[in-house]
Amino acid sequence: MTLQHETAAPTDAPQPRRTPRLDWRDHAIYIGFVVVFLLFAVTLGADGFLTGSNLLNIVRQTAVIAVMAVAGTLVIAAAQIDLSVGSVAGLSSVVTAMTLSATGNLLVGVLAGVGVGLLVGVINGGLVAYARIPSFLVTLAMLGIAGGVAQWISGFQPIPILDRTFTMIFGSGDFGPIPSLLLWAVVVVAIGVVVMNKTAFGRQILATGGNPVAATFSGVRVQRITFAVLVISSVVAAIAGMLYAGRLQSGRFQWGTGDELSVIAAVVLGGTSLFGGTGRVLGSVVGALFVGLINNGLILAGLDVSQQIIIQGVIIIIAVALTRKR
Rank of each mutant, 00 (worst) to 15 (best):
L143V: 00
L137S: 09
G109T: 00
L119E: 12
V120N: 08
V114S: 09
P134N: 12
I133Q: 12
G109H: 03
T139M: 09
G117I: 00
A141M: 08
A131N: 12
L107V: 15
G125L: 03
N105F: 10
N124Y: 05
F136A: 01
G117T: 00
L111A: 13
L119F: 15
L143A: 02
V110A: 11
V110K: 06
G121S: 07
A112C: 11
N105I: 02
G125H: 06
S135F: 03
G126R: 06
L137W: 07
L143G: 02
Y130R: 12
G115N: 05
V114R: 07
A141N: 05
T139V: 03
V116S: 09
V114I: 15
R132W: 13
A131I: 04
N124A: 05
A112T: 00
R132D: 13
M142C: 02
G109V: 00
G115V: 00
G109A: 04
V120K: 08
Y130S: 10
V128R: 12
T139K: 05
I123C: 14
A131P: 06
G113D: 01
V116G: 10
G109C: 02
V128P: 07
G117S: 04
A131K: 14
I123V: 15
N124C: 06
T139W: 12
G113H: 01
G126W: 11
L137T: 02
A131L: 14
G125N: 08
G126Q: 12
G115M: 09
L118Q: 08
G126K: 05
G125R: 02
G121A: 07
V110W: 11
L137G: 03
S135C: 03
N105H: 14
N124S: 05
L143I: 01
I123S: 12
A129L: 07
F136T: 00
V120I: 14
L140Q: 02
P134E: 10
G115Y: 07
R132H: 15
G117C: 03
L106A: 04
N105G: 06
L137I: 14
I133M: 13
G121F: 04
F136M: 01
A112V: 00
A129F: 08
V116E: 11
I133Y: 10
L118I: 04
V122T: 14
L127S: 03
F136I: 00
P134M: 08
G125F: 05
V122I: 15
G113I: 00
A141Q: 06
L140C: 03
G126N: 10
G125A: 10
I123M: 15
L137E: 05
A112P: 03
V110G: 08
G126M: 11
L127F: 13
F136Y: 06
L119A: 15
L107T: 14
L143D: 01
A131D: 12
G125C: 09
T139D: 09
S135W: 02
A131E: 13
